[in-house]
């Protein structure tokens, strides 16, 4: 499975009284990557959630054209994207192996790649350790193993380098490079360099308040 082109037009998001962003658009083709930038609270995670299908797209549209057919994909990103966030989606009471096996089976990956993936991220010798006993960085490595057992063409990574040590970040860089080389598409948010040259950069500026009562601010001398 390969994505030919993914394009977003006029995406907008609102949280409470705040317009996080509006009129966001981009277009990526096979092998390209996009970096999301912006201060905390500017909506990077929300945008990634929208792209992953976890949040409904109210305005604007997202179009995906697969290599197999010229028509836009009906299911959107359903079943073709990886979403890695600060939430680890690992169960403390399951072992390293069980956690990876579950997600691989559930998301339709290949069980045969499991051992190879674990040894790539450095967790191979102790697959039966409970995830509860892993450090934050080791957990992150386990999540990265998921990228290897299930080959989806679109990677959505939200601050993927968080809690990884220097070596772990290098591992991440290699994984991303290989993904792009294989024709995958990558959209990541990060505040530090990820070691990949991004083709496009999208800056979110922090949005605006919908009910902008300036006089209230003046009264408070703000």
């Amino acid at each position: 499975m390969k994505i030919n082109k993914i394009s977003a037009q006029q995406l907008a998001a609102q949280k409470g009284e705040r317009q996080l962003f509006e009129n966001i658009g981009f277009e990526l083709s096979s092998g390209q990557c996009l970096l999301l930038q912006g201060p905390n609270g500017s909506g990077k995670t929300t945008l990634l959630h929208m792209l992953a299908g976890a949040e409904k797209i109210e305005t604007g549209k997202l179009e995906i054209i697969m290599a197999a057919s010229p028509e836009p994909r009906i299911d959107g990103v359903f079943g073709i994207s990886h979403f890695i966030s600060h939430q680890n989606s690992l169960k403390a009471n399951l072992t390293v192996y069980e956690n990876l096996k579950f997600w691989t089976e559930f998301l339709g990956g290949e069980i045969s790649k499991l051992d190879q993936a674990l040894s790539t991220v450095g967790l191979a010798p102790m697959p039966h350790i409970l995830a509860a006993r892993l450090s934050a960085g080791q957990k992150k490595r386990l999540m990265l193993a998921k990228l290897l057992t299930i080959s989806h063409p679109l990677w959505l990574l939200d601050e993927p380098s968080v809690s990884l040590d220097a070596e772990g970040q290098k591992l991440l860089t290699i994984l991303m490079q290989n993904h792009l080389k294989a024709g995958g598409i990558l959209i990541a948010s990060s505040h530090i360099p990820l070691g990949v040259e991004f083709d496009q950069i999208l800056s979110l500026d922090g949005g605006k308040y919908l009910f902008n009562d300036d006089y209230l601010l003046e009264e408070q001398n703000l």
Binding site: G122, L123, P125, M126, I129, Q138
Partner: peptide, 8 residues
């Protein structure tokens, strides 16, 4: 585990 990660 720690040693292995260092090797990797």
């Amino acid at each position: 585990l720690q040693q292995n990660i260092q090797q990797v």
